[in-house]
Design a protein around this nucleic acid. Structure first.
Lengths: 248, 248
DNA sequence: TCAACATATATTGTTAACAATCAATGTCAA
DNA sequence: TTGACATTGATTGTTAACAATATATGTTGA
């Protein structure tokens, strides 16, 4: 009757790391699920359009469906998943238009953050930023894509933390997460990822407290990221076994 | 046993308008509740700290508790309510620190929006902005505080719409809503509300397409609003019968 | 071979009953 | 009167069963 055969669309979620999301585990199943799904998306283990079945999640996280439903409602409010009535929950698949708006919003917010960061940067902050870049380089040399993505996002979130505004921090967290989703959907074949050097340049400009340069580099960095997208090529958003075997 | 005596903290929610929130009714109880609560907060019918009991909401909206719980989870994700385990849901009560961060974020986002709006403004947009100001003035002359608040927020949201970025639009919606909450908590006695003229000035600057002036006026407008706050005076956040009778 | 239809299975949505927890009231002794 | 303690009632949290819906499978007829 009910023999939960590992759902192929869920392979990534079985990563043991998942049950210990970045947010401290406060024993509330809803929070754990939300954190785990966000982490999985941030590291591109969960692709856009992936189905998040209620039973699958309740088995994975050892909780009842009521908690799963609450988690999915919260994720929908954060624009992380889309809830289609009587169909279920799916990882959000931003359209080309949404993608452009998300990147535009990112530039606006990261500029503000950069301006604050220049004012408030200190030795400790510099050290943490450099450590983040080092971690990113290490991950890339090891061809560990999830770790690389995590580090790259971490760099931007560190800047937001240094800016000292938790509201903007949260907004940026949403935008970086959705950016990862967008890159997964629209990234060109073999996109360079050369933007890593950009981070080093930004830190140098921060050390020099050159506001104009920091703003310019931040803006260019984000535009370069967006330029790597290809909205022409149609993207598969529905991840089903059939699509995975026979392609789009 | 169960005789739901109208909860005093819920008086405002019995406003018939509430069942038809701004978002079109799509028959999903969760969405309706979320919209109604946000509207009620935006018009200062629901104060910070007000308790949102599950049974009370399920009776008000004719739905089961499961849907109420989903709605509350969504509202928590939007930072509209705070969910205290085993205690219930309460309208968020931003601290002084949070308030400052929210207003700082607002200035950052509204500046970006204003810059875009200057570029994209047209005759239709001007007309709608002027209509919004007229509605605000009318509401004030009628001493209809909820309508005045709604119109004032509407002006800012109209600008965001004109800017043409739905992400920033959503961010600003959250921030204006929380601003209303903050004003309800920390506003000085008899605060002027003279900022209404600011709106007229901004529209004039928009017509002239004077970007620098628009940015300056927007920034001043928001700082003036923030200056009307008094964080020293302690604020009652827990709305209970006792507090209402004996004061804070 | 293919399309349309009917059936079966799985998934989501709803409801009610029960358990656990908290707030309030009442009692009693110091 | 006041403080600690026990009890009561109300509220939140959990669970399981059931209903409604959608998806997948299988069948039939051209």
């Amino acid at each position: 009757m009910f023999d939960f055969t590992p759902n192929p669309t869920f392979g990534p979620l079985q990563n043991p790391d998942l049950k210990v999301p970045t947010a401290a585990m406060d024993a509330q199943p809803e929070t754990i699920i939300v954190g785990a799904v966000i982490d999985a998306i941030s590291e591109q283990r969960l692709p856009a359009g992936a189905k998040l079945g209620e039973q699958a999640l309740s088995v994975l996280f050892n909780c009842n469906r009521a908690n799963v439903r609450r988690a999915l409602a919260a994720l929908e409010a954060k624009h992380v998943v889309e809830l289609r009535p009587n169909r279920g929950a799916f990882v959000a698949a931003p359209s080309a238009d949404e993608a452009r708006e998300i990147f535009q919003a990112r530039r606006a917010i990261e500029r503000t953050i950069a301006r604050q960061a220049v004012k408030r940067i200190d030795a400790d902050g510099i050290a943490r930023l450099k450590a983040s870049i080092a971690a990113e380089n290490l991950a890339r040399s090891r061809r560990d894509k999830p770790a690389e993505l995590r580090s790259s996002q971490n760099f931007h979130m560190l800047l937001a933390e240094l800016a000292g505004n938790r509201v903007l921090q949260r907004f940026l967290a949403e935008l970086t997460m959705r950016s990862t989703l967008i890159l997964g959907m629209y990234a060109r074949e073999g996109h360079s990822c050369a933007h890593c050097d950009d981070h080093t340049g930004i830190v140098d400009a921060l050390i020099a407290r050159d506001e104009a340069l920091v703003l310019d580099l931040t803006d260019r960095h984000l535009r370069r990221l967006e330029a790597e997208l290809d909205f022409e090529r149609p993207v598969a958003v529905t991840v089903s076994l059939k699509d995975q075997i026979f392609g789009s």
